[in-house]
Design a protein around this nucleic acid. Structure first.
Lengths: 255, 255
DNA sequence: CGGCATCTTGACCTTTGTCAAACGCGGTGG
DNA sequence: CCACCGCGTTTGACAAAGGTCAAGATGCCG
């Protein structure tokens, strides 16, 4: 596929409805506020919430590299990822590209300010997601406090991750950032499928670098370092085997 | 005041109820999701919301340097800042201290995971805040969708700031981080009082450094650089005059 | 006025960014 | 089936930014 074809693929048929809405159900995972759990993430949508959301939403299939929405566009939908991985990024005035988040199954994306998306969202793998019209969602929220609280939890969860990401990215050395990142990807990959200690990075070096605030060269060198320490093994550019989780956690500064 | 007395001050009488609850009302500012505004922050609490919150809350006065709550403590309250400035920070396993946020009037703090505070909150100036019992708040949220949506907006707002902070802190140079930070402090200071282009940093170099992911030496040098460019003028360690907002925005990479 | 904490300055060194080139893999076309 | 091509990744040499360590200046508060 040449560059021209690729551009086309990103623009046309970005999202195709999938029938039947079938066995997939909306799902949002996050750690709740309340005491009791062990801080672990749990499903925040009740069966009723899921039904309500399914009633107003459409399950869409998104091709790899296709855009879900663009920064500045009218925010008509929020998305609940069912399978696959997406990224959101922003272009800075100086031309830098910042990857603000990677979205895995049970994540929510599409938050807006003033009716406009604040970032561009693109699928990193073939993606299945519920496309939820904001208007209809607002109508539900107006009269369903429980769903509201679920969303509040999710947002708090995101907020905390975002803050801890800011921390990671601000003070840690390159290999510490990488180590933390790999642990995270391994974790979320594991809970949506994979069972072994080998996992696949759904994104390329560029995206990792733009997410971690590094250059692709530094990402590469940091991977070297982690491999030299025996923490990981590279089976391919995107195939990572986790050899020693302890060493990785240590490298990540989690002691 | 010696170190010992200071410790005492941080632990005893951290918060003293203020009577009468008087003229101050709870207030939360953030940019809403919906189209229509210009993306500017607005008051999210209706008069009814404010009344409901006042009915269950207590206005407390917190001394400079006193703690509002400690990381890991039982999260009984959330706080709505009325006047003054607070910071939240976390201690990392390696001993680093990360300032996760500075809280200004109309901000909310005290979010928890699993019933525990995730950071320590400390007043940087004498502080007035509504202390809202989480239990009672949850009861209100259960039956008040509008207040829920207000909180959702606030959290989204925080989330966006947090992400943009992660961006700032990850790729920008030291003086760009400083410039962005100064613009932000100037902005929030201006909307809660001050009228001129001169403002006071409510925090010391250590906190700025721990927030921006720099060392205090670098903060100092970056301030030098900005002053040399004629963007700011230091009237004292904490007194900054904004001479050229354009230059500052340029230095912040906002072109 | 004195003492102490905070802030600034200076010299040096580590880490990461930059620029450039080589490598490896997958896909295409001969 | 194999050579070639293009892209993403890796590697290397160098420069620049910021961290570190140490000392000196400043300002605040008693």
């Amino acid at each position: 596929m040449n560059v021209f074809d690729k551009k086309i693929a990103e623009q046309n048929d970005a999202q195709t409805p999938v029938a039947p809405p079938s066995r997939y159900r909306p799902s949002i995972y996050a750690a709740p506020f309340q005491k009791g759990g062990d801080g672990a993430a749990v499903e925040l949508l009740s069966a009723a919430d899921q039904d309500a959301l399914m009633a107003i939403s459409q399950l869409v299939s998104v091709r790899r590299n296709a855009m879900l929405y663009a920064e500045g566009g009218e925010a008509k939908f929020v998305y609940n990822v069912i399978s696959g991985v997406a990224k959101t990024f922003q272009l800075q005035p100086n031309g830098d590209r910042h990857v603000t988040a990677f979205l895995f199954p049970r994540d929510l994306l599409g938050l807006s300010v003033d009716g406009q998306y604040v970032a561009t969202a693109q699928a990193l793998t073939p993606l299945l997601a519920y496309q939820i019209p904001v208007k209809a969602l607002e109508a539900i929220l107006e009269r369903d406090p429980r769903l509201n609280i679920g969303l509040l939890c999710k947002l708090c969860h995101e907020l905390r991750s975002s803050q801890s990401h800011a921390i990671t990215v601000s003070k840690q050395h390159a290999s510490a950032r990488l180590a933390g990142f790999l642990l995270w990807v391994e974790h979320v990959s594991a809970q949506s499928g994979g069972g072994t200690s080998e996992f696949t990075l759904p994104m390329g070096r560029r995206d990792m670098a733009d997410y971690l605030g590094l250059t692709i060269e530094t990402v590469s060198r940091a991977l070297n370092a982690l491999e030299a320490e025996g923490a990981i093994l590279r089976r391919g550019p995107r195939a990572i085997e986790l050899l020693d989780g302890g060493k990785l956690r240590e490298a990540a500064g989690l002691v």
